[in-house]
Amino acid sequence: MSARMMEDGVYYVGSQDWDRQIFDELIPLPQGTSYNSYLIQGRDNTALIDTVDPEKAHELLKNLQELELKIDYIVSNHAEQDHSGSIPLILEEYPEAVVVTNPKCKELLKNFLFIPEDKFKTIGDGDKISLGGKTLEFIFTPWVHWPDTMVTYLEENKMLFSCDFFGSHMATSQLYSHENEEVYSAAKRYYAELMMPFRPTIKNNLAKISKRDIKTIAPSHGPIYSPVNEIINLYKDWISDETLNLVVIPYVSMHGSTRVMVDHLVDSLIKRGLVVKPFNLGHMDPGEFLMSLVDASTLVIASPTVLTGPHPLTVSNAYLINLLRPKLKYVAIMGSFGWGSRMEELLKGQLSNLKVEYLESISIKGLPTQDDLEKIDALADEILKKHESS
């Protein structure tokens, strides 16, 4: 994507990565991603807000050369390499520029990219730099989603360059969110995969930036928001303690027994008016699964045993759930075994970060009998009761 003027003196100079399929060797990217970089031209100085992933550095450089502007400041909101990785190249091309960032980000950039000490201008929370008719304010927003993260506010244009805050993994030729309504689903996926563990700090940082008059939010990934009310209200909902009447059931079945249990539970919950989302861990989209956890009240983990423990797919997903700390209220564990099981004990040990109430587990030897299916119906009754009382 070529350089595009957003407003007078404000340009988009980033890159769309249509082909990238995975992030951090972990997160699928069904819509690719973008690396958003912005150039702000004042009367006296020009600032580049973040750079791009090193693989797209040539595109950033081409866009900057198109504009034929000098660069005085390179603002680094966050040291992760998809934002900062092209800084060394930009410093080579614009040797008079200095990197403006906070102390934590500075130390990370020195470690990651070997940027020398004399190339930094270190700022504090709330500090400002005037470009001449354009004023940048730096607001520290730690743990959204790294300890070094900050955002940059352009006062005169009421624009917030929000780094990963409000981001979405989406490559698109449409620069603004109102041109592509899919962005809100992509933003929820992004929140689920990266931001969910940091709900308390996001609440604090959302309150902090809300003190500014914001007309436009320009994140480092995905489309730009203008107006901004919808994405801010969605974040307020996602970080709240409120949950929906939703039961999420991740499951694995090796020989069919656990699948019979899951199918029966799904039918039983639907008959009771609950919303249910089952996910076969061997075939699911991980992002869709994590998105469902943003709102769910209840998680039911269903697994067969492998050497008396939960199936490895169950283990890896339980580990991820524990890291992401969704705002679940209730968890139940059920499964089948052949000759012995420690599944309940092991899974509860893996989910130590969750502040939930555990419902009675169901452990079945072999195929479920009629008595076993009645136990599953009783679990459905208990889940309904819990949801109605919440």
Rank of each mutant, 00 (worst) to 15 (best):
F161W: 04
E179M: 11
L194Q: 11
R189S: 07
E179W: 00
S162D: 14
L160T: 00
N180S: 14
S168F: 03
H169A: 15
H178L: 13
Y176T: 00
E193V: 14
S168Y: 00
F161L: 13
A187I: 04
C163A: 12
S168C: 11
A187S: 11
D164G: 08
Y191T: 08
S173E: 14
L175D: 01
A192L: 08
H169L: 08
Y176W: 15
Y191F: 15
L160E: 11
S162L: 06
E181F: 00
Y184A: 11
G167T: 03
F166P: 05
Y184E: 07
S168M: 04
V183N: 00
H178C: 12
S168V: 02
S177I: 00
Y176L: 01
H178T: 10
A187E: 06
K188G: 08
V183F: 00
S173A: 09
M170E: 05
C163R: 03
A186G: 07
L160A: 06
S173T: 11
H178V: 10
G167E: 06
E181P: 06
Y176G: 02
L194S: 10
S162A: 14
S173G: 02
L160D: 02
Y184W: 12
C163M: 10
E181T: 03
S173F: 09
A171V: 10
C163V: 14
H178N: 13
E193D: 11
V183Y: 01
F166G: 04
M170N: 07
N180F: 07
F161R: 10
A171Q: 13
T172Y: 01
G167Y: 02
E179Q: 13
Y191I: 00
Y191N: 02
S173D: 15
L175V: 04
D164Y: 10
K188N: 12
F161E: 08
S173I: 09
V183M: 04
S185N: 12
A192D: 07
M195L: 14
A187W: 03
S168R: 00
S173Q: 11
Q174W: 07
G167P: 08
H178R: 13
Y190H: 15
N180E: 13
A192M: 01
C163W: 07
G167C: 05
S185R: 09
D164C: 12
F166D: 01
E179L: 10
A171D: 12
S162P: 09
H169Y: 15
L194E: 15
A186D: 13
S185D: 15
S185F: 10
S185M: 04
H169F: 14
V183H: 01
